[in-house]
């Protein structure tokens, strides 16, 4: 098949970017989207042109590197899918595919389709952990955890930190990301001890980093490659309200 591509090109963080048009022939529908981009790049390099910079690594929808906004959706067409698992059979012959980087103030573009997601790391450093040093751990079975809570905590912990939630949200809100971590740890007995502090610190950091606020559109949930639900956002709201009213500052 033959496709037309309309891809955001930007030399570096300070440069002004623009869309560049490409045409690619001989695209196999069994190709993954990333392999299609690879073959475009091979072609561009051979033609002496600048290849398109984009991020990818594991190709198993688990590392969270890919960050492509394709035809108006993070990770492209399809639900509960990351870009790396999307294949060209999802597109039609002759179709124009527009590829953009994640757009958010907190995720500045570094080059072409590569954005800086350091803000997520900063959020984690602000409280996405349980304060325990190596060697201090009690026996793993000393704290019993109900299977329901453990499974629910896992559902939240499945987040791959790709940032599709922020990219999908019209407010560039990081609430799904933060809520997943806060919920995961608040659901487990070992995480409850500093649950309030965690919620307060992570939300404060989220606001500081310039993410928007949640207006409950549910776009994040619809685009999350791991299907993380916005019921965790309700839980974060609950945890945060409760912490704000009870935790001494």
């Amino acid at each position: 098949m033959k496709i037309k591509l309309n891809i955001w090109k930007q030399a570096n963080a300070k440069a002004k970017g623009k869309f560049e048009k490409y045409e690619l022939d001989g695209v196999d529908e069994e190709m993954s989207f990333l392999e299609m981009l690879d073959s475009l790049n091979e072609k561009l390099i051979k033609e002496g042109k600048e290849p398109v910079a984009y991020e990818h690594d594991c190709h198993e929808a688990i590392c969270g590197s890919c960050s492509l906004y394709i035809n108006g959706r993070p990770h492209g067409p399809g639900d509960v899918i990351a870009t790396c698992q999307m294949h060209m059979r999802s597109f039609k012959d002759g179709e124009t595919i527009t590829v953009e980087p994640w757009r958010a103030k907190s995720f500045p573009v570094l080059k072409d389709l590569i954005v800086d997601r350091d803000a997520f790391d900063k959020l984690m450093a602000a409280g996405g952990f349980i304060s325990i040093d190596a060697g201090q751990a009690p026996d793993a079975n000393a704290n019993l955890v109900s299977k329901i809570d453990a499974d629910k905590a896992f559902d939240a912990a499945a987040c791959i930190g790709c940032g599709a939630c922020v990219a999908a949200c019209k407010n560039s809100s990081a609430m799904l990301f933060v809520s997943a971590k806060v919920s995961q740890l608040a659901l487990l007995p070992q995480g409850k001890i500093e649950a309030k502090r965690r919620a307060l610190n992570m939300v404060a950091k989220m606001d500081e980093l310039g993410f928007g606020s949640c207006t409950n559109t549910g776009a994040c949930e619809a685009e999350c490659p791991k299907g993380i639900g916005i019921d965790f956002i309700a839980k974060l709201n609950r945890e945060y309200l409760c912490a704000s009213f009870t935790e001494a500052e």
Binding site: W8, Y69, R73, K170, N171, G212, T215, A219
Partner: peptide, 29 residues
């Protein structure tokens, strides 16, 4: 105030407007 701040969280908009399947009302409150 919130709408203004949320707009500031995305200084540059997408070329292709969001095609995510969510209710129109939720996006246009």
């Amino acid at each position: 105030y919130i709408t203004l701040k949320n707009r500031m969280a995305r200084p540059q908009n997408y070329l292709v407007a969001g095609k995510t399947n969510v209710s129109w009302a939720s996006k246009n409150m």
